[in-house]
Amino acid sequence: MIADLIAPADIDAARTLIEACGLAFQPGYDDLVGVHEQGSLVAVGARAGRVLKMLAIAPAQRGGPLLGEIVSALVARGIEAGFDALFVFTKPAYAAAFEALNFTLLAAREQAVLLEFGNGLKHWLAAHSDGQHPGRNGALMIDGLTFSASHRRLIESAAGRVDHLYLFATAEDCRQQMADGVRDLINVVVLDLAQYRIDTASFPTYFLKVSDPVEKIRTELDATLFATRIAPFFGIARYFTGTADDAAARAIQAQGIAVCAISTPPPGDSQ
């Protein structure tokens, strides 16, 4: 039977089980639940927002119904909390166990995989199908909190090289400014990747070692998700970036999307 783990002794037991499974206990969750058998904790799992994490089953109990029991409880609570789809980030070796529970593999790299429960990505794409345009299209990510004149010149320069340019803002504040700032550019579409952009805040690290290059793993997983699931839907064949040789650019290029280095043209040179 599923129990909430709230008392310090229960949390300690959870930490011990999680660590025994080669994972790390990572505080910061909405639910921490477990299953006891004959007085000892044999299965545990947590939910932080839409992300399930720290799923651990005692070695002797693996292959049985416990993972399904824990995941059912966490998914039910996630749906109750208003999320239509839930994520699991984990080691590639565990992907199959979640696929058997009807999770869909969204992105896979050597050290990390992302799986989703529910048809969230399918619904997100369907909701943005009016943004689909035929042609040889490009993508440009805009970092930063404000939309500036140099962003505008960069966008004009990129938009001139493709049929349609998709703009992705990493910050919500910037997205609105950007939508206003490019309204007159007819072949530019502003999109919000929402939860399908894996940022530092949403990426759990409980399944990685302290010595792992966490930021590189996150960036590559994010870029792979974008290149394999988002870009094909919008016919994105070119990816514009200022830094063509970073981990994200290499991961995107590996999926057959041309990476184009682009630099901000000086003022007055935008035509």
Partner: peptide, 18 residues
């Protein structure tokens, strides 16, 4: 409103209605 029932256990199903 949203309603759900069931589990992801073997031989069971989870149904979400919205």
């Amino acid at each position: 409103r949203k309603g759900q029932a069931g589990t992801m256990q073997s031989s069971d199903l989870m149904v979400i209605v919205e």
